[in-house]
Structure formats: structure tokens, C-alpha cells
């Protein structure tokens, strides 16, 4: 009798427990609004992989180009709509941090990351995922039509034969454009040399695009022989069958990390922290590696198809803090020099 009762109550407890589990799980299912600039074609895969480990967190992506996401975040400074940033230019995250928009959080396993990929404050406000690296997309078919030779260095691009055959992103709207400009300034001289280089380059540029991936896509489509863009985009286009060579100029190339952070004031802090923890996990790093040759956790990256092998060694030592704090001034100067001049033909 007694045992029977126990048995019965045991069954009851089990049922109740299961019920509670179901209920708590459904109660736990959180919608996280995630702002990102990660390429559209990767988003679904990222969310899927994440949900394998955390099915209770539902990611709602807000995807746009770096400039637009950054603008959106700043516009919403006093009324944040995002919970998490996952995959936005590191420079933008520095900007968010200086506006006090990020919630400092030390994610699990942060010590495994390359220190370059972690905010150096005691409690970091952001962590890096991977790096995208500038490169030149070179359409061999179109170049042949114009009798062009492939450039080896940035300085090569100044040659008169490339006049009108070059496209690069406008740094005012494109993160890629900005990393190009900031890398040239760092390589050729912040005060003078960099600007001299751009002055001469500008003469060869056909036009500036708003987005950073467009120059490579245009080069892939033959709209222009040479597009200054980033390696990842070039690899993608090459994979699709475009007659593209990815050139990594010998002087070195600018790069930018993709980073993540939690928006201060999010009502879903727990879920946001779970996502950030996961975003620097080995699984995540391996996931990034399918597209990006450089990831934040040393030793994880495997070579990526179509990526030039010289890429890693040619990445410059990038001073992100300098870039972030001088971004405004650099862009203003760029605007003054090239945005108006280019119209007068």
C-alpha cells in the first residue's frame, strides 16, 4: 500500500517535473534581437549552429552593411532596439563603447582568444570573432581586354594604365573602405604619406561604392576590372565561377575584426551572455573559419579555399584605438579631398 503510494507519487512527481520542464523551457525561449553586418548568406548557418547548442534562444537578425548598422545603433542610443551585436566591425564596437552603449562582460573562455581580439579593459566590452582582410579583386578577362597587368603592390595601382579601371568603397559608408584608408595612413604615413597616396590613387578610381563588397562583386561581374574590396568576398565570387584573382598587395593589407558585444540595458541579459559565451567558443570559431581565414582563437583556423596563402603574413599591425579616435577627422578629410573633387570632370 505504502510502496504503491510512493510509486504513485513518484509517477506524479515525474509528470509534474516533466511538465515543469516543458513549461520552463517554453518560458525560457527568448527572442534576442541581434544586430549584425555578417554577410547575408552566412546568417542562417550561424543561427542554426548556435541553436544546436542553445535551442531556447531565438535569434532575430538585423542585417545591414557596417555603416548602416552602426548608424542605426547610434540613432537608437537612447532607445536601444538591439540586445546583442554579433559580427560588426571592431571600430564600430569601439565607438559604441565610447558612447557607453556596451554592457561589459567577461565571457567564458575569453582567455583562449588572441589578446588582439579582446577589449583590454579589465571587464571587456567586446570580443573579436574573426578578421576580414583587405584585398584586390582582379578580373582577368576584363583586364586582358584592356591589356592590364596584375598589380603586385598598392603602389602599382597608381600606374596610369589603371586609370578608370579601379573601384573602391567609400569609407564614409563602408567599413571596408575605412579599413583601406586607415591602413594606408598607417602604412604610408598618418600625416602626409597616406594622403599623398590616396590623392594619386583617386585619379585612377572610376567611382566609390557605398558598400564594401560591391567593388569585388562588380569586378566579378566584369563591370570593372579591379575592385578594392576584401579577400573573403573575392573568394566567394571566385567560388561562383567569376574570373577573379585575389591579389594581396605586398606592402601589407589592412584588416578589421568582426566583434561582438552586449547592448547596455538589454532586458535579456542572461540570453545575451549565453550568446556571447558561445560566440567565442571553439565551435563558433570553426564555424567562422569556413569563410574567414583568420579567427580570434589561435590554432583553430584551417586554410580556406580560394584564399591566397600570403594573406595572414601580410596583415598589418592595426592600431584600432587610433583608427576609432581619429575616424571622424579622417572621414572629414577624405570627404573634403575626394567626395567633391570627383564630380568635377
Amino acid at each position: 500500500m505504502f510502496t504503491k503510494l510512493i510509486k504513485k507519487s513518484g509517477v506524479m512527481t515525474c509528470v509534474a517535473g516533466a511538465l515543469m520542464l516543458v513549461m520552463s523551457q517554453s518560458a525560457l525561449a527568448v527572442d534576442l534581437t541581434v544586430y549584425t553586418a555578417v554577410e547575408a548568406e552566412d546568417l542562417a548557418r550561424y543561427a542554426e549552429t548556435f541553436n544546436k547548442d542553445h535551442p531556447d534562444i531565438n535569434i532575430k537578425w538585423v542585417r545591414d552593411s557596417t555603416g548602416i548598422v552602426t548608424a542605426k545603433l547610434l540613432a537608437e542610443k537612447n532607445n536601444p532596439q538591439a540586445d546583442v551585436i554579433w559580427g560588426l566591425a571592431g571600430t564600430s564596437l569601439l565607438l559604441m563603447k565610447s558612447e557607453g552603449m556596451l554592457e561589459p562582460y567577461k565571457p567564458k573562455g575569453v582567455e583562449l582568444l588572441d589578446p588582439k581580439f579582446v577589449d583590454q579593459s579589465p571587464v571587456p566590452s567586446w570580443t573579436g570573432m574573426d578578421a576580414w582582410v583587405a584585398a584586390v579583386c582582379y578580373n582577368t578577362v576584363e583586364a586582358a581586354k584592356h591589356n592590364l597587368k596584375p598589380p603586385k603592390t598598392w603602389t602599382d595601382l597608381l600606374k596610369p594604365m589603371y586609370k578608370g579601371h579601379l573601384i573602391m568603397p567609400n569609407p564614409n559608408s563602408s567599413g571596408t573602405g575605412f579599413l583601406d584608408v586607415s591602413s594606408w595612413l598607417q602604412m604610408f604615413g598618418k600625416e602626409q604619406g597616406g594622403w599623398d597616396y590616396m590623392d594619386r590613387l583617386h585619379k585612377n578610381i572610376a567611382r566609390y561604392t557605398h558598400s564594401g563588397s560591391k567593388p569585388c562583386k562588380l569586378a566579378a561581374a566584369g563591370e570593372i576590372p579591379i575592385g578594392i574590396s576584401f579577400a573573403f568576398r573575392g573568394a566567394r565570387s571566385k567560388a561562383k565561377g567569376a574570373p577573379i584573382e585575389i591579389i594581396v598587395p605586398e606592402e601589407g593589407v589592412g584588416w578589421e575584426m568582426e566583434a561582438s558585444g552586449i547592448i547596455a540595458g538589454t532586458p535579456n541579459l542572461k540570453a545575451a551572455q549565453t550568446l556571447i559565451d558561445w560566440s567565442i567558443s571553439k565551435t563558433a570559431m570553426e564555424m567562422y573559419n569556413t569563410a574567414y581565414a583568420v579567427v580570434g582563437m589561435p590554432g583553430v583556423a584551417k586554410p580556406v579555399k580560394y584564399f591566397p596563402d600570403t594573406l595572414l603574413e601580410r596583415m598589418i599591425v592595426n592600431d584600432f584605438e587610433w583608427a576609432a579616435n581619429n575616424r571622424k577627422a579622417i572621414l572629414a578629410e577624405w570627404l573634403k579631398r575626394y567626395d567633391s573633387k570627383s564630380e568635377a570632370k
Binding site: A71, L74, A75, N172, S173, D339, E343
Partner: peptide
Amino acid sequence: PKVIGGQYNMLAVDIYKQVIGQQNF
């Protein structure tokens, strides 16, 4: 003008560039 304007700036695109590109509201 956004699609085909190239470097030719027009007022409506400037608004976009100022806001979206430079976050200069």
C-alpha cells in the same frame, strides 16, 4: 541617384550618406 549616381552627389542621397554613412544626424 543612389543606384546610378556614382560620385555625383545629390541632396536626397546626401541625407542618406550623412545619416547612414557618417552617423551625423
